[in-house]
Computed example of a mutant assay.
Amino acid sequence: MKNSYKVGDKAIIIRQFYGHEFEIGEIVTILHDAGHSDFFQASDGKNTWYVSINELYPYELIKKKYRKNLKNTGKIY
């Protein structure tokens, strides 16, 4: 399976399976493909950890959803 993340993409941490110390809900930036299609080096601007694709959710998808909800209903949820 080829991942959809590229260097510079933003993602939200949704799980912790493999020992990173990011907080759930934290927005991180992908810094490097770890050489395995399911792992990335990511940073929150202060710390850098390796994360799996299963611990991330694309920030842009959430941002689009909340913008659409806000525009249509005046609420973000």
Rank of each mutant, 00 (worst) to 15 (best):
F17K: 14
F17Y: 09
Y18T: 04
Y18Q: 08
Y18D: 14
G19N: 02
G19D: 00
G19P: 00
H20V: 04
H20M: 05
H20G: 09
H20Y: 01
E21Q: 12
E21F: 11
E21R: 03
F22Y: 07
F22D: 00
F22A: 11
F22E: 00
E23L: 01
E23T: 14
E23C: 08
I24L: 15
G25M: 06
G25R: 12
E26M: 02
E26Q: 15
E26A: 12
I27P: 04
I27F: 03
I27N: 06
V28R: 14
V28E: 02
V28S: 06
V28N: 08
T29Q: 15
T29P: 08
I30V: 10
I30H: 14
I30T: 07
I30W: 13
I30F: 05
I30K: 14
H32T: 03
H32G: 00
H32F: 07
D33K: 04
D33P: 03
A34E: 14
A34F: 12
A34C: 10
G35C: 03
H36V: 13
H36K: 09
H36Q: 07
H36D: 12
H36R: 09
S37W: 01
D38P: 00
D38H: 13
D38Q: 13
D38C: 07
F39T: 10
F39H: 07
F40I: 08
F40A: 11
F40C: 07
Q41D: 10
Q41V: 11
A42Q: 02
A42P: 02
A42V: 15
S43E: 03
D44Y: 09
D44R: 15
D44N: 15
G45P: 02
G45Q: 00
K46Q: 10
K46C: 04
N47R: 14
N47T: 14
N47K: 15
T48W: 07
T48H: 09
W49M: 01
W49Q: 01
W49H: 13
W49A: 01
Y50T: 07
Y50C: 06
V51D: 00
V51Q: 05
S52I: 09
S52V: 12
I53C: 02
E55T: 11
E55R: 04
E55I: 06
L56Q: 12
Y57E: 14
Y57I: 04
Y57K: 00
